[in-house]
Design a protein around this nucleic acid. Sequence first.
DNA 1: TTGTACGCGTTATCAA
DNA 2: TTGATAACGCGTACAA
Lengths: 334, 334
Amino acid sequence: MRVTIKDVSRVAGVSIKTVSRVLNNEKYVGADKRERVLAAVAELNFRPSTAARSLAGKRSYQIALICDNPSPYYVYEMQSGIRDRCEQDGVRMIAQPYDRDSANLLTDVENLVDATHVDGLILTPPVTDYPAVLDLLARRRVRVVRVSPGTQLDLTSSTFIDNEGAAAMMTEHLIGLGHRRIGFIAGHKSYATSGQRMSGYMRALQAAGIELDLGLVKQGSYDFASGSVAAEELLALDRRPSAIFASSDDMAAGVLSVAHRLDIRVPDQLSVAGFDDTSLASYVWPPLTTIRQPTRRMGYVATELLLAGEDAPIERREIAFEFVRRASTGPFAG
Amino acid sequence: MRVTIKDVSRVAGVSIKTVSRVLNNEKYVGADKRERVLAAVAELNFRPSTAARSLAGKRSYQIALICDNPSPYYVYEMQSGIRDRCEQDGVRMIAQPYDRDSANLLTDVENLVDATHVDGLILTPPVTDYPAVLDLLARRRVRVVRVSPGTQLDLTSSTFIDNEGAAAMMTEHLIGLGHRRIGFIAGHKSYATSGQRMSGYMRALQAAGIELDLGLVKQGSYDFASGSVAAEELLALDRRPSAIFASSDDMAAGVLSVAHRLDIRVPDQLSVAGFDDTSLASYVWPPLTTIRQPTRRMGYVATELLLAGEDAPIERREIAFEFVRRASTGPFAG
DNA sequence: TTGTACGCGTTATCAA
DNA sequence: TTGATAACGCGTACAA
């Protein structure tokens, strides 16, 4: 048999409503009664039914993560951050799968919202910028916090890192080592972060008076395989780059493996830099300089913003990234 | 405003109960009425409230995954498999974090069960074998399916691979290549799979008449770092092994990186074999022979068993693993 | 500061 | 084969 508020109220010798008040930390409860209620709750091991709460009240104590990032590390870190924060508030996380290209995406999200009454949603790239989804959620007045959005920045609260600044810093670093021909591998097209990172690369080149050579820029898609392919092309050039900056560490790993196969020594003959620093790659190849994206923290803060409540102001929270230089990164290194 | 069954019933011109019947695929509904209800549901875009359903009925349409595996790949694959199957039944997955060593684990799980009314739980190692948790869930009559259990196999339904057989096969493979001194790196102590894999290693040695040398067996904990440490020790031996079999691919990656640093060529001077085949390692180092554990499928099938319902018989479902030989694995290779 | 009565949206019971 | 009506366990509105 399930223990209900009724049972608690009987044991504590107070009304149902008083128990409810204690549970929800409302004002106007006598210290003595509060005491008795708490004791009864502990004694009976009472835990309120989420279903009943969300049916009767305004909150469901559930939030959902809409995430279809192809990188397991990213997903794992994001979920971990979210759950860390959820735990503090006794909220549960529903992990909602979706198919990036699914025609059902809208239906799925609407389904989720209606069926679960979630208190809010966290969106990650690339869905974080899908206009149709944003529209839908705005219409339905669902609280949303977005991670790394690229458009409509003032629409909802969000967390982000300065992708452009970080990429510029990395590029400057490479330039500082003496590199002039720096290859760049862009991320997945549908991620706003890809463009931001590439902007940083271009900005730094320009600031250093280095002409942008589009032959040194390749399209990738954030994963190992695309990094390998891009590296093949870059390293087969007549005048091959002396450094390659990949927009993700998985792609950087691809670069390193190709370099290894071609007997190009890293970092002596080729500097390699990456972004994200979450996968095994960084352990495996120490001579890889990366920008570490604090994915877990982004999830944590996003959750915090989400749980802040209905009328909390829209806030854009920037999370600090970390520049991780594990070893010398090139032939020009001091 | 939320669309309710009431609205549907009004539009369809039938009673609330009839709508409910159609929704739940119950018998005794006239074809014409069913038709009208379905039309009304589509027209109004009606989606039943999970909260109300779980409050009134016996099902909550939610299951939870209790998972604290340190490998992001494992977690990701497991979740993906579960969600794939959930989607078919319109069920949601709650991803429940837990701290392996937490004193609160029991409380957390009980909390989850009481608060969410989940229809069932999926347990992965190491919690899949925690007696206290199993006891609790049995007492509470919660439906449970376990992944890779090591004890009390008949207590609940479960999915598993033949870890012992796979490890034996891999060891035989190495022996077949001519190796006699084969190092072994065991997995995390609290995982039953660790022992199973080690048994397979020992069985194969014995079958081949090779004496077990405990100096060649090191304790690991499934992750990259522990693999590196173990490899350091194994490769520093006076008579170092000509092959190393690591119980996970992350550990195998550690072995490979150490070998690389020590200028020991793989596979020419050292054969390396791994288990799991989920991480980046296999992409990065082709000369790594592995057992591929179909984690996603294990999650999928576990979910299927879970959703089979209250009175479904207890079933142990074995999932086939895959032997992945990417390249020659040693100096003795034909 | 406390308690009563009602409603949330669905399934279950039982009568028609 | 259908439909009233009573739960389910909690928050809300309002009265005391």
